[in-house]
């Protein structure tokens, strides 16, 4: 088994809350609360979950766009969390990011050539002509006409803007790219183009992706393994096919039951699990399992003890007490008798 390119170990990102006249530190929003995973070179890890569960925060903390509260993030041999500023700057070319909103992630006052060329300005001392040549090369790679080099972002469509963002991320030949909902702001017909472009580029340059999305069918298309997040923690981390065929964690099960089924016959027999209630506040999560307030299969232990992420079947990691007495074996475990209780909670 090859060395993982990215290893995240117990990453925590807490945003402090200050209240009152004296701005006292009264609590933390635990946006990310102890997340661990690793990504192999050339692999795509999908990160899914509902809005506000901390997906984007994981992506940003990974590249140290936020200062993580605790944990280690080893990318290509260096612990990014503890790197001093200048070393971090030198490290930046290996890890890049594609942002969610292509409109907001491009400076409206810079031409396309300057936007794509900015990483080159920062990390190389090439002469102008060589930089321009590289910019043209990148534009070819992402399918942008070279004639657009002088134009400004507002003159492009959403899909083209996302291509600009991807070209900028590629400029320094990174190994690892965090795609932070790169398709969420795009039209469905354009989404496919952008995802295919990302796949082509991965094949061509051997890129490693962390693909953050709430679009489950798109993640199924692009990811090799998928991590399901709920309220700042990973609920389940499984290979894609296994997860989509038979989700283990009750939350993953509920989440995946929401995927639309294109076949109308099968859609009729599809059972949706509808969760009751709201996500608890990340400033004040439950004492036990984070999902215990909404879980259809909740039992007493869930309310007092947080489950740890454990390997319950080969390569399948689940944080749930339901699987505690199941020992991971080469043949896998007999499945606990599961039935989808619609709408019945607690």
């Amino acid at each position: 088994m090859p060395e993982p390119l990215v290893t995240v170990d117990d990453l925590k990102m807490h945003f402090p809350i200050y209240t009152g006249v004296f701005r006292r530190h009264t609590g933390d929003v635990k946006a990310v609360d102890g997340v661990s995973f690793s990504i192999l070179p050339g692999e795509t890890l999908g990160l899914v979950g509902e809005s506000g569960c901390g997906k984007s925060t994981v992506g940003r903390a990974l590249l140290r766009l936020y200062e993580p509260t605790a944990g280690r993030v080893v990318i290509d041999g260096d612990d990014v969390v503890s790197l001093p500023p200048e070393a971090l700057r030198k490290k930046r070319p290996t890890m890049q990011m594609v942002f969610q909103d292509p409109q907001a992630s491009l400076n409206p006052r810079m031409t396309l050539a300057r936007i794509i060329g900015e990483p080159l300005d920062e990390h190389t001392d090439w002469p102008k002509a060589k930089k321009l040549e590289r910019v043209y090369e990148l534009m070819d790679q992402v399918g942008l006409n070279r004639r657009f080099a002088n134009r400004y972002p507002h003159e492009f469509s959403g899909g083209q803007r996302q291509r600009i963002g991807i070209a900028r991320a590629l400029a320094l030949n990174p190994k690892f790219i965090v795609c932070d909902e790169p398709i969420a702001a795009l039209d469905v017909s354009i989404q496919a183009q952008v995802v295919n472009l990302l796949e082509d580029l991965q094949e061509k340059f051997g890129l490693t992706y962390l693909f953050i999305s709430h679009d489950l069918s798109m993640v199924r298309h692009i990811a090799d393994r998928v991590a399901v997040m709920y309220l700042g923690k990973i609920a389940e981390l499984s290979p894609r096919d296994a997860l989509y065929a038979r989700p283990l964690h009750p939350y993953a099960e509920a989440l995946l039951s929401a995927v639309n089924e294109p076949d109308p016959v099968r859609a009729q027999s599809r059972k949706r699990i509808i969760l009751k209630g709201d996500v608890p506040s990340p400033a004040n999560p439950p004492i036990g399992c984070n999902f215990c307030t909404r879980c259809p299969k909740v039992f007493d232990r869930c309310r007092v003890e947080k489950p740890a992420l454990r390997e319950v079947e080969p390569d399948r990691f689940v944080a749930c007490h339901l699987f505690d007495n199941i020992v991971a074996g080469p043949t896998g475990a007999p499945e606990a008798s599961e039935h989808n209780q619609q709408g019945v909670t607690q």
Binding site: S105, P119, R168
Partner: peptide, 10 residues
């Protein structure tokens, strides 16, 4: 986000 993007570039 473009400021964040610039920071991610270094």
């Amino acid at each position: 986000e473009f400021v964040l993007a610039a920071r991610s570039i270094g």
